[in-house]
Design a protein around this nucleic acid. Structure first.
Length: 496
RNA sequence: GCCGACGUAGCUCAGCUGGUUAGAGCGCCUGAUUGUGGAUCAGGAGGUCCCCGGUUCGACCCCGGGCGUUGGUACCA
């Protein structure tokens, strides 16, 4: 067996990927269950699509060649390029285009699952991560946009993130375009509009001065890297900066201010009208300015958005290695009225949002709001007499039939090690049956959580060996006895 | 993609102007306790000092390259 070590592979996950174990998976499952509940309350129905799509579906391929663009994991089969989906919106637009007449209109669906991006992983950023989307396809009504806010606000609160711990920022791409009109920036000219949008998008990270630099000549960052600017005149910059500072508590006043800023721009005015309509609808849903604000600096990347855009941020700070930092954006969304058009040529309006499940989970963990109590292990049946496995198995079976998660110890170690095992599994109860018990017809039940609690007060060995956390019950009452202990736990007798 | 930092036991980290037996805490294992986890005490196991190459009598330490992690920046559906 020696001499082959060099041939052995080292166990490792690909860069940017990770293995997930019980605690995280349980937390995620619960979060998704909560989100499903909220989404369905609004009439969204489930949808699932494959991990792989043809690249033209995703719209990701290099202009000059037939190979996929960077950023996606791609593979080729029979001359055709496929790629792993990088979001859930592109698959949705494909579905709508493909099954259009079989689907209701409007079509409201939610979808959750992993997406993959081939890019540099960062802290809390992986190359495989979960998204949980909901979208309304086939209506231009601002009600659908306003409802996004309601769904998200309710989702946050259902997850235990209270008022004041989150804020939804709403803006409208039409208003942004209106402002660009107002400073007389020509469409599609050297990407100047793009550069302005990029600069605006960085307000929260770089601050006003940084953005000012990017709007003008460019900016040198602390690492010495230079980023080119949008090359605006100082008058133009002033207007844009003024626009960025238009955020105030009162949504109506933001609208009024924006109306001035877009001047005579038609799209701009339309965008403001839409925001005003959304405001009215938000009021009807009792969403106040402590939950939803209008924030002109929200751009949401340079994506396909064509109208209102939303960003949900967590406002609390989190301790990470001593440094306090804001959690930032965990959801994003908005209106994309031309995505389906790519396929059918027919203009089908759509709007929706995507929750970044993993980031939100990290946030909940940091908040300490994760319901850790639920990650309780099974009842463990310890084994003394190996030739009575059938008896132990019957106990396990009785408990399982009664709906109690139970595990019969299957290792080979001694009793002591078995209890350690039970402890590591966060087992609530250990069932103990050795020769004493088999003789008396009773079974010993050990309340592991009570034992843990008592251990904090016990000092000397004498008290230690008395085992006050144990009870003996007749074999026939095994299930009832275990149930009683579990109920005691559930009733809060185990809190500390 | 670009710039920088870091990479020592399972984990968090110490260490050395380059000198031959590399340390701590926690965790793990064993025993004190012929049938009792979590407390206490006593022992013990565990390391290619990220990888490859170079400099040197000698490298965990210096140099080069690679890989990985991380901070910033760019791009971002």
């Amino acid at each position: 067996m020696s001499g082959q070590d060099a041939e052995r592979p080292t166990p490792r996950v690909p860069r940017g990927f990770r293995d997930l174990f019980a605690a995280d998976l349980v937390a995620r499952r619960e979060m998704l269950a909560t989100l499903v509940e909220v989404y369905e309350r609004y009439g969204f129905e489930p949808l699932d699509t494959p991990a792989l799509e043809y690249v033209e579906t995703l719209g990701k391929f290099l202009p000059e060649s037939d190979t996929p663009d960077g950023g996606v994991f791609a593979l080729r089969e029979d001359e055709e390029w496929m790629a792993m989906r990088y979001d859930l919106t592109a698959p949705l637009s494909r579905v709508v285009a493909q099954y259009g007449n079989q689907l209701t209109s409007p079509y409201r669906r939610y979808q959750m699952g992993p997406v993959w991006r081939q890019e540099k992983p960062g802290p809390g950023r992986y190359r495989e991560f979960y998204q949980c989307d909901f979208d309304t396809v086939g209506t231009e009504s601002m009600v659908a946009d306003a409802e996004i806010c309601s769904v998200v606000a309710n989702s946050f609160e259902a997850l235990g993130i209270g008022r004041g711990e989150y804020i939804l920022k709403v803006n409208n791409r039409k208003v942004l375009n209106g402002v660009l009109d107002a400073i007389a920036l020509p469409e599609d000219e050297g990407g100047q509009r793009l550069a302005v949008l990029r600069a605006i998008d960085k307000l929260d990270r770089l601050g006003g001065d940084g953005v000012r630099g990017l709007l003008g000549k460019g900016r040198m960052d602390p690492s010495g890297d230079y980023t080119g600017g949008a090359d605006l005149s100082s008058e133009q910059i002033d207007i844009v900066m003024g626009y960025l500072e238009a955020t105030v508590e009162d949504r109506t006043r933001v609208c009024a201010r924006l109306r001035e800023l877009v001047g005579s721009s038609e799209v701009g005015a339309e965008g403001v009208r839409e925001l005003e309509e959304i405001h009215e609808l938000l009021e009807a849903m009792d969403l106040g300015s402590d939950q939803v604000v209008f924030d002109p600096s929200v751009v949401r990347g340079l994506a396909y958005y064509t109208g209102p855009v939303v960003e949900g941020v967590l406002t609390f700070e989190v301790d990470e290695d001593g440094a306090r930092r804001e959690f930032g954006s965990v959801i994003g969304g908005g209106r994309y009225d031309s995505l389906v058009e790519r396929f059918t040529g027919a203009k089908i309006p759509a709007t929706g949002a995507s929750i970044g499940v993993d980031r939100l989970l990290t946030a909940l963990k940091a908040l300490g709001r994760q319901r850790a109590d639920r990650s309780q292990g099974p009842v463990i049946i310890t084994v003394f007499e190996r030739d009575r496995m059938a008896d132990y198995q019957r106990m396990a079976n009785d408990l399982r039939v009664a709906g109690i998660a139970t595990e019969l110890y299957l290792g080979t170690k001694g009793f002591r090690a078995q209890l350690k095992y039970a402890d590591k599994r966060h087992s609530p109860v250990a069932v103990i049956a050795g020769s004493n018990e088999f003789e008396s017809g009773e079974i010993t039940l050990k309340d592991l959580r009570l034992g843990a609690k008592l251990s904090k007060t016990i000092k000397d060995r004498e008290a230690w060996t008395e085992q006050p956390a144990q009870v003996a019950v007749p074999r026939a009452e095994l299930v009832a006895g275990v149930k009683q202990l579990l109920e005691r736990h559930a009733n809060g007798g185990d809190q500390d």
